[in-house]
Nucleic acid binder design. Structure first.
Length: 451
RNA sequence: GGCGACGUGGCCGAGUGGUUCAGGCAAGGGCCUGCAAAGCCCUGUACAUGGGUUCGAUUCCCAUCGUCGCCUCCA
């Protein structure tokens, strides 16, 4: 069974399932106010690999991933551009799923929107106020973190230490709050801002409430896994958890966080630094599979630097796998080699050791090629194992391509010329095909073409 | 100030107390090929620095240097 690092306990431990055979996962989705960046891509790819692996393992996965479609940044942009905020959220969400589609990221089983859950959020906030864990001020409602005994669990910091540093930083809303770390559950709206009714006045929910309400509604108490990027660990996930704990609810059983995308200098890439490399650019200029490959060859918890060289290397690695897929397209179906798949599972189950799994994949490809060269019997099982592993991590290999008739005719002419030892004609035909963008492989068995 | 991560061969990137061991990319040599491509084989005395523990450390401990992250924008 899968073992994963748990941020809450700071150890790799078995992912215990509340319900045998089914995995319930909550993934913090995007705030839709701009184009997705590389970090978004990493997070969704990491959890897509996780999801596919679990499904490949025979488990039923329910993956809930929200869309935050009401937020200060959305309002700011709407004001700046003098557009209705819904226009921005609708468009950004479409762009988001388009990009995810290009990356072969499966759509979550559930995609709840914050704006669909405002009534439930108001209800939850009301309960928190009622039991004295939250309080209203003249600008909103805040959760009192001092009433949450283990606040700071995910951040691995005590409440005092959380506030010790950061010298010059201003504490947001300090004048209204009882404790500097208290966070907004409800923000009263200014005139002209989107708002919903509440007992404390018209306003909008704070960022951290939606995930609590939606995860508990769709997945229920004590769901298996809550995940997202490292930067969500604190304050977002800490504050989600604080609300659930304050309500006396069992929340996520296991917490998983992926590492950052960093730039060439090793610094975190984020919107606030202004060095955003856009995910849309990446999928436009490169084979989108290259990003998945790059991430698979790194561990999900470490930093990854997405550079030209790294992407190029992944593209090349992929080309080798594609060539293998083309070469083996006609290999008779066989049962996948069990020892290879066992080794694969062992690596994946060890905190999603995808680099180890990829090493095994490449080794298996090489072994299969050797077997094919020798016309050995074991080739089929190895080929099948390669395809199984690719499926498990969501890698789609491009085998022999669909070839237009006139191109196929050229390939046939090329074979005929070679058979007739008319190498000048053969070379000319090959050059033509290559100039047309085809990868041409002439073998004794005939010419194969790939894009 | 508090908490944490990391420094590996030309590059990327895993991993481990002790004969060969990742893997990918790149490079050199060879086999195959009409020539290529693809594939296969071989090659390169890596583990930030200084101590310590040990029969033995890249792997454990301590220190130093360096890089980075979080401490209410953030995947």
């Amino acid at each position: 069974m899968l073992h994963l690092y748990d941020t809450a306990t700071r150890e790799v431990r078995e992912l215990a399932l509340r319900e045998p055979g089914t995995v319930s996962i909550y993934l913090c989705g995007p705030t839709v106010y701009g184009p997705p960046h590389l970090g978004h891509g990493r997070a969704t790819l990491v959890y897509d690999v996780l999801r596919r692996y679990l499904e490949w393992s025979g488990l039923r996965v329910r993956l809930v991933s929200n869309i935050t479609d009401i937020d200060d940044k959305i309002i700011e942009r709407a004001n700046r551009e003098q557009r209705p905020w819904q226009e921005i959220t609708t468009k950004c969400e479409r762009v988001w799923f388009d990009a995810m589609g290009k990356l072969d990221v499966e759509r979550p089983t559930d995609v709840p929107h914050a704006t669909e859950y405002v009534v439930q959020m108001v209800d939850m906030i009301g309960q928190l106020v009622e039991i004295g864990r939250a309080y209203a001020t003249d600008d909103g409602v805040y959760l009192s973190v001092e009433t949450v005994e283990d606040y700071g669990l995910l951040a691995n910091q005590r409440l005092d230490d959380l506030l010790a540093g950061g010298g010059e930083r201003e504490v947001f809303g300090a004048e209204h709050k009882r404790h500097p770390a208290d966070f907004a559950l409800w923000k009263l709206s200014k005139p002209g801002e989107p708002s919903w009714p509440s007992p404390w006045g018209d306003g909008r929910p704070g960022w951290h409430s939606e995930c609590v309400v939606m995860s508990l509604d769709l997945l229920g108490e004590g769901f298996d896994l809550h995940c997202g990027g490292m930067d969500l660990k604190f304050p977002h996930h800490e504050n989600e958890r604080a609300q659930a704990v304050a309500l006396g609810k069992r929340f996520a059983n296991h917490w998983m966080h992926n590492g950052f995308v960093v730039d060439a200098e090793g610094e975190k890439m984020s919107k606030s630094l202004g060095n955003v490399a856009n995910l849309l650019d990446l999928t436009e200029h490169y084979d989108p599979r290259a990003y998945r490959m790059l991430l698979l060859q790194s561990h999900y918890r470490g930093p990854v630097s997405v550079t030209q060289d790294n992407i190029d290397a992944s593209v090349k690695a992929l080309a080798g796998l594609d060539a293998f897929a083309a070469r083996t397209a006609s290999v008779a179906p066989a049962t996948a080699d069990a020892s290879v798949l066992d080794a694969f599972r062992a690596r994946m189950d060890d905190d999603l050791d995808t680099p180890g799994a990829m090493a095994l994949l490449f080794d298996t490809v090489r072994r299969a090629n050797v077997a094919l060269d020798a016309a050995g019997d074991e080739a089929g099982a190895l080929v099948a194992a390669v395809h199984e592993m690719c499926t498990a991590v969501g890698l789609v290999l491009k085998g022999a391509a669909e070839v237009p008739a006139e191109v196929a005719a050229k390939a046939a002419a090329l074979d005929a010329a070679r058979a007739a030892k008319d190498f000048a004609t053969a070379d000319a035909l090959r050059a033509e095909l290559q100039a047309d963008g085809w990868t041409v492989e002439t073998t004794k068995a005939g010419t194969t073409l790939r894009r």
